[in-house]
């Protein structure tokens, strides 16, 4: 899987690249509009992460250009602008998602995962981690081919864990992904513990390995070693 990261802020670009490479993607980067234009003209990518405010041009034009020559690449816009107009414009031009800065790298990764899955396999691909299999279409979980009942939130949690497997996920990142940004207004992140405890119990009861580990003081991690 090849991903192009178009972002003018050097350190953010490097962070994104590093995190996505951890997750097994091949990443290329572009720091400004002409460089990005040249890359999309020459090479084929599976997914393109593009900032709107670029030197010498707009990320919207990159999206338009990609759509213009019928690129099959998934497109995620990342922008500091949190306006409905920009989001709508991005989606109208043909981008698949719109992520507002600042964002969690794990969130960006999960969204890239989702887009790639939809693009490549029309959404029918199973998400697998050892004996755990998720069916994104039916939002169903099977462990060792046996169906396990999960709540909607538990499913989203597990999907997020698998997308960011072996990475530490902080409570704010988990809460924002599963329950949304506004959740923080209503309380702290302690309630996450209950949900993870339940999910873990269901997995163990179904005969799966104990993959979800508490990382002392920081969050949780799905890992098989």
């Amino acid at each position: 899987m090849k991903i192009l990261i178009i972002e003018d802020e050097q350190y953010l670009r490097e962070s994104i690249q590093k995190y996505l490479e951890y997750q097994g993607y091949v990443c290329e980067t572009a720091a400004n509009f002409p460089a990005a234009k040249e890359k999309i003209d020459r090479y084929v990518y599976d997914c393109i992460v593009v900032d709107i405010g670029l030197p010498y041009g707009s990320g919207f034009d990159i999206v338009a250009a990609l759509k213009n020559f019928g690129s099959a690449a998934g497109i995620i816009i990342i922008s500091a602008k949190n306006t409905l107009d920009d989001k709508l414009k991005g989606l109208e031009l043909g981008s698949d998602d719109y992520l507002v800065k600042p964002f969690h790298l794990s969130e960006l990764n999960a969204r890239i995962n989702a887009i790639l899955r939809r693009r490549k396999f029309e959404g029918s691909q199973w998400i697998q981690f050892n004996e755990i299999k998720l069916d994104p279409e039916g939002q169903r979980l099977t462990v060792n081919e046996k169906t396990v009942d999960l709540t909607e939130k538990e499913y989203q949690l597990l999907e997020y864990f698998i997308a960011n497997k072996r990475r530490v996920l902080t409570k704010p990142a988990i809460a924002e992904h599963v329950w949304g940004d506004e959740y923080v207004q209503a309380g702290d992140y302690d309630f996450i513990y209950t949900h993870i405890k339940n999910l873990r119990k269901k997995l163990l009861d179904a005969g799966s390995g104990d993959y979800i580990k508490t990382v002392y003081g920081s969050g949780y991690r799905l890992t098989d070693n």
Partner: peptide, 20 residues
């Protein structure tokens, strides 16, 4: 407020990587 979003994004991403 708008310009602050990008540096915050940089710091947040660096901390997230550091945590790994």
């Amino acid at each position: 407020a708008h310009e602050m979003q990008t540096p915050i994004a940089v710091v947040q991403s660096k901390l997230e990587l550091l945590l790994q």
